[in-house]
Design a binder for these strands. Structure first.
Lengths: 241, 241
DNA sequence: AAGTGGTCTAGACCACAAC
DNA sequence: TTGTGGTCTAGACCACTTT
């Protein structure tokens, strides 16, 4: 366990890095088991307590999760932490109602230059565009614009491929591309006429705008998503201590 | 350490509860030292390792913080976690610019019924109302409406009492009332005419609305605050894993 | 029965801060 | 020097899961 440079970095930190590295190098994917505590301890020539501490820290950071009697697994990305979760009926107490989605449009077309660049493509590249509506009960609540790198998800533009509500499940299953990380940015705007009519609200109503950048392994961004939702159906609640 | 009921609750959990209880009972206030690991271990008749684990957990929850060589302290509330932090210039990368505040109005007056009730007062009670503007550089960015229980902060309505940007520091220092917890709820609305003119924006511009409930010990709410800010100067960023 | 993680202990040694 | 927290080890025992 000296190969990580023997500065003043604690052993358990080096064990954490070792575990994350073996995941990052692709030897382990979300859902996989990692070696057991005794195995890691012997492999790295440290005590089991040190391995335990390293794993506990990674569990706290949600990089791993554990099941007694079974083992330690690499985390799947948890979109329960998405700001989406805070779209709800009225201003209920933080309860996120189920949002059902329907595909309105899917096509290969030239992407806006800014989005192409964000995705690491030349400006004016052809991208896969998917538009979906989100409903709570039967009421439209949000419009979602997704832009994908078409080489990552070939054939997804065909109507024969069913797109489930949780699109990332399809992508990992059909194309073997897991979404391992995402960044979300929230702002508020005024509904433009097109959006207003889609959501059945007055023009000049406030809307909440959520931009998401979704990444797969190696820090490669694979989707740009803009979600526009009715502000009156959104509330985000936090506790400070 | 059996006095917490000998169900199947792990020892370290019971130690956590014991520490939190001694804080809650008022024997310890934010900033105070708690007993050292060896002291707690002997006092509760458990091993030092168990005390360490309990304290580590509370540190992770931000209830305590530690300084090597000094000791373990009860946390002060950290308003760096406030959603406020995400008001910024343009859509910079999560950097929160400094917000300077000026008092526009302070008076005792009858509070709106809903706010009186939230504060646990009879409807139409007299409350202390304080309105402040928030600036980034010289540009007004938000308007803040604060409603306080006047019995908690007597005399605060007098102009001779200077109100600092961080109002809670004054309240704890002058009245001995610490803010130990707060809840914040975020939504978006359209600026009403009064707000629009105060912020120097067009009517019908989008604004971000932040409601805060601030609590002191014993779960007593002492302030209701509504902050209305320019949406174009707000962005909230998260990472999902 | 064997293997996994979960809890708890006891003790060594180090780093930092105060006196 | 003394007391604090920070790291690391070794080992016992328990609870859960699979074979």
């Amino acid at each position: 366990m000296e190969q990580y440079g023997d500065k003043h970095i604690p052993l358990y930190k080096r064990v954490e890095h070792h575990i994350l590295n073996t995941i990052e190098e692709g030897h382990l994917v979300p859902g996989d088991l990692i070696p057991s505590e005794p195995q890691l301890a012997e492999q790295l020539n440290v005590s089991q307590g040190t391995v335990k501490k390293a794993i506990e820290n990674l569990v706290n950071e949600k990089r791993l999760f554990r099941h007694q009697g079974k083992g330690t697994y690499v985390s799947r990305i948890d979109f329960n932490n998405s700001l989406f979760r805070f779209f709800s009926y009225g201003d209920e107490t933080g309860k996120g109602a189920r949002i059902r989605k329907t595909v309105q449009s899917r096509e290969l077309k030239q992407g806006p230059a800014a989005i192409c660049q964000t995705l690491g493509k030349p400006a004016d590249s052809e991208l896969l565009y998917i538009r979906r509506f989100g409903y709570i009960q039967e009421e439209p609540i949000l419009v979602e614009h997704c832009w994908w790198c078409p080489d990552v998800v070939p054939g997804l533009e065909q109507d024969s491929v069913h797109i489930p509500d949780l699109m990332y499940a399809l992508v990992v299953e059909k194309y073997g591309v897991p979404v391992v990380r995402a960044e979300e940015t929230l702002t508020a705007e005024i509904a433009d006429p097109a959006t207003a009519s889609m959501l059945g609200i007055a023009e000049n109503s406030p809307v909440v705008v959520l931009i998401r950048h979704a990444y797969t392994r190696n820090n490669k961004m694979i989707e740009y998503r803009k979600t526009v939702g009715r502000a009156d159906k959104f509330s985000y609640k936090t506790e400070i201590r």
